[in-house]
Write a protein that binds this DNA or RNA. Sequence first.
DNA 1: AAAGATTGCGAGTGATCGGTTTCTAACCTA
DNA 2: TAGGTTAGAAACCGATCACTCGCAATCTTT
Lengths: 224, 224
Amino acid sequence: MRRAATAAASPRRAAAARAKPAASRTQTERRSSTIAKLVQAGTEALIELGYARTSIQEICLRAGVSHGGLFRHFPSRLELMKRVAVEVGDGLLDRYRQQFARLQQHAHDPIRLALELCRGTCQSRSHQAWFELMMAARTDPDLRAALAPIWASNHADVLALAGQLLPEQSGHPDFAAIVDVMVTLMHGEAVERFVHVDPEVEQRRLAWAQQAVQQGLLQAATRR
Amino acid sequence: MRRAATAAASPRRAAAARAKPAASRTQTERRSSTIAKLVQAGTEALIELGYARTSIQEICLRAGVSHGGLFRHFPSRLELMKRVAVEVGDGLLDRYRQQFARLQQHAHDPIRLALELCRGTCQSRSHQAWFELMMAARTDPDLRAALAPIWASNHADVLALAGQLLPEQSGHPDFAAIVDVMVTLMHGEAVERFVHVDPEVEQRRLAWAQQAVQQGLLQAATRR
DNA sequence: AAAGATTGCGAGTGATCGGTTTCTAACCTA
DNA sequence: TAGGTTAGAAACCGATCACTCGCAATCTTT
């Protein structure tokens, strides 16, 4: 399906690209370049202005693409937002994975690290775009329908990643429930952060969460 | 300042009101009646359509008030939204207080009851309007400035109410932190609910939260 | 190099936005 | 009951919304 390799295979076009790298590009390069610019601009607009004010003209202005140029690649605003959602969701997971891999050797407690990274991810700029789409979808049936499968796969990916990064704990019968509670807590924290930020409260909250997770993991699921 | 009593003080007008209660009303009655209708309509529109689509004409349509009539009582959309926020915030607290008073005699565990009511409140229709205003304010500086004091007082009221309803636990050094974590958790739950609802996960989450609160209350703050 | 396909551009379209203005109907004071 | 004030209705304003369309520029194929 993809034809990215075709460009490099043509010696004549490759030579032209070497001579005037900015001026002459293949169609697929032009296409993917402007698409990337549009998606990036859409993400930034979501973060800074919110879904309602992320208008076509705002995106085009930020991307440096004309009004009509956008519709050459996306048939509607909704389709662009779908693409943004996929890109943002994948980006958040990648970010988490990379940070964990980089820091886990120097971390004393992997659970603490996991919680801190979870908080950091939920408070990141990208995650604000994610929330913005979630909230907009609440009252926008079309957007909701379009994003539902993206959310579902992302949710599954989060749990899978947690099990992958914490292999020793992943076998615990309550592991999924604990991950769920912690992610939910971080989501609540991120939402409240839009209203008010209190570093001291946040620190106590994380300490409390860490303790609760460790106690939860120590005891077997004897509740039932 | 207020003159609501003036109407009832006039015997002639009171007689007229008794004769044709719907047709003839005092100015203050007319005024407060349409204001109430506008605030109610604004709240419902927030819940069903979201902040962005809660337009002047949508509110007027729902309230049965003309476009110009709205601006007779509110100088701008923002002022109406401020009023909605106050009304919704107070309503949520009243609702919680009343439900707790009604159910605490039959409840086995007041902490469990407090958590269940907190969840119920955060998942109520009114709370969706509250969230909608929160999220809209994230990217709307004017709205944010207008709602900041309302949030601050509401936040203080929530903690005060918790201490009032759980007098035995309110003296614990971690009480405020525990209430904070639980409210935050319920906020996260409410947000995720916009995406997906899973009753089984929610049940486990509440059981886990209850257990965590009880363990947190049992031990003194020995962390430091 | 000619012909064909793809990409980018920007002036349109009708609808809707928050807010103003003008005018009539209802109510209050005296 | 006359004169003044308040409440409500509806036409109107410029700005902005998502989206369309015809045309020019740039690749790709022959």
